[in-house]
Design a binder for these strands. Structure first.
Lengths: 145, 145
DNA sequence: ATAATAAAAGACAAAAATATCTTTTACTAT
DNA sequence: ATAGTAAAAGATATTTTTGTCTTTTATTAT
């Protein structure tokens, strides 16, 4: 199993793509994004609708429309995307799926995973949506294949 | 999303349970295990059949039969279980699902996840199947709910 | 106003993961 | 050898995730 769901993978890649496009002052259409991150177009459309409803990205309909990200949203952490799509079980839940797992009633892996969970969480919290824009524009980072 | 698949969660919990039972010199039946880790019995049966085929646990049919783990298997790392069930994408794959992601063609999160992947991997490699037996027997650790 | 455009919304389909039940095989104790 | 037991194997069902297509709504440019 991967760290994120397919939906979340597409979401993060798309948001990075839209962030890059927005920084250069443009809006990105769904076809352009889907091609740019190599994802199924209609499936991605659903994901972006959801992110839009949740205020993580913005959109405009009609000619010259498309998706964009405002400067305030650019400084949001990518943990916001992950939480919106996959929930917080990645950094809050028990690795073995136990509802009651805690300090007082720990699963065998509770302590060994504590640090890892925290690391994932703080990493996602300290990485922003707009953080990779210049490297993306320079072509140093990849969002597809 | 959780770190492991449901199948893998059940697998690890069941293996810990069988390890504990084996250490006290007994075999564990499927009903006993399913009850002991709070999992669907028939689904767990399938999982254990698979682990048995792969040599991670052993089984005996008929009266007094059941599942057990030999002393050699007790010192195996739990990464063996994870790999057998979920594959190695958790510690090898790209967080954003890119096939080609690497040092030369990294995704935006490649570097931030490198350390985390390594930590997860080494943790799972350094934790053995039998490691929690005494604490499990003392009731200090939980495998259900 | 109207036509063209692009996202939103709704409905549907396929695949994978999770779960259940039945039949068969192997082993044990009598 | 036979009956009882428990896992293995096979078949089927349900749910969730992933993916596709069509219709509607909002916006823009003419």
């Amino acid at each position: 199993m991967a760290i994120f769901s397919k939906t979340c993978e597409y979401a993060i890649r798309a948001v990075f793509f839209i962030a890059k496009t927005s920084t250069s002052g443009n809006r990105a259409g769904i076809k352009e994004i889907a091609a740019g991150i190599d994802s199924p177009e209609f499936f991605l459309a659903k994901i972006l609708q959801d992110l839009s409803r949740k205020g993580l990205i913005s959109s405009v309909k009609g000619p010259n429309g498309g998706f964009y990200i405002g400067s305030e949203e650019l400084s949001r952490p990518i943990s916001d995307i992950v939480t919106a799509v996959d929930g917080d079980s990645l950094f809050r839940g028990c690795a073995l799926g136990l509802k009651q797992c805690s300090e007082v009633k720990p699963c065998p892996l509770h302590n060994e995973f504590k640090d890892i969970r925290n690391r994932i969480h703080s990493m996602l919290k300290n990485t922003t949506i707009g953080e990779f824009n210049s490297e993306l524009m320079e072509g140093l980072l990849s969002l597809k294949k």
